[in-house]
Amino acid sequence: MGIEVKNIKKRFGKHEVLRGINLEFVPGKIYGLLGRNGAGKSTLLNIIAARIFPTAGTVTLDGKTVCDDDSALEQIYLMSERNLYPEGERLKKLLKTTELLYGSFDYTYANKLAAEFSLDLNQKFGKLSTGYRSIFKLIVALCVPARYVFLDEPDLGLDANHRELFYRELMENYAQTHRTFIVSTHLIGEFANLLERVFIIKNGQILVAGEVEDVLAKAYLIAGPKEDVCKYSAGLNVIGHESLGNIYGNYVFGGVDDERHLPDTVSLEHLDLQKLFINLTNEKGEK
């Protein structure tokens, strides 16, 4: 059940953007799809929503191939940075079209959200600022009857107050509908607690997949005098380090050895998702 992505590869000319992606979105969870710019997140989402085609691999929803199937596609809504809405169309008209094509639409909720975000639905889409385009698309995403809602950088152009409002509404909506949300974002710190599962994608491959809690349980910062830290972290999967004078810190992913004696001088603490992400996806030479 759910959306299954099997061995998706995508090549643009000589550039291999996705190199064999396998993942699954089961119903009723909030997923985070994290990756740096150019990691292939948007390409993957566009393939899932049948906007572009993979070079190889399949996407299925409850076992049905998504690509040319209306009954599968109507279960998916992809909100993306790319604007597929015609510039000259009024927002109200766009909501009407959405209702016609998705089969239903929650106008009461949409009007409530529009009022909260102070978005005037009589405007034309093309007149909206980047932030309000995001807001409009978010409103559609929350009011559409699709069971799988993909949000590709939903925070684009949103100020802190609007983001706060969005997180509230997302949680409220999730509590009521228990749909699946897949969020791709760079604001990891703000989204971390919202997510139940996470995929970290790097260079077109899935680097980390799992429950956020389990992933974080394996991520540590080992800090103290350099010698002691290095001795303690020998043989562990060190993904990064930092130093401040004599104090040295090693970022470790994959768990520590409980049998190993932790010296008094060395401290061991967990990482948050953002710190883990940064250290996992740093390129050589970046700090």
């Binding site: 049948a50 040319d68 209306d70 992809l78 015609p86 094509l101």
Partner: peptide, 16 residues
């Protein structure tokens, strides 16, 4: 193309 884009955003397949 304009119609196609809008329909695609609204979960309509190419075939339809």
């Amino acid at each position: 193309y304009r119609d196609f884009k809008l329909l695609n955003q609204n979960g309509i397949s190419r075939k339809t």
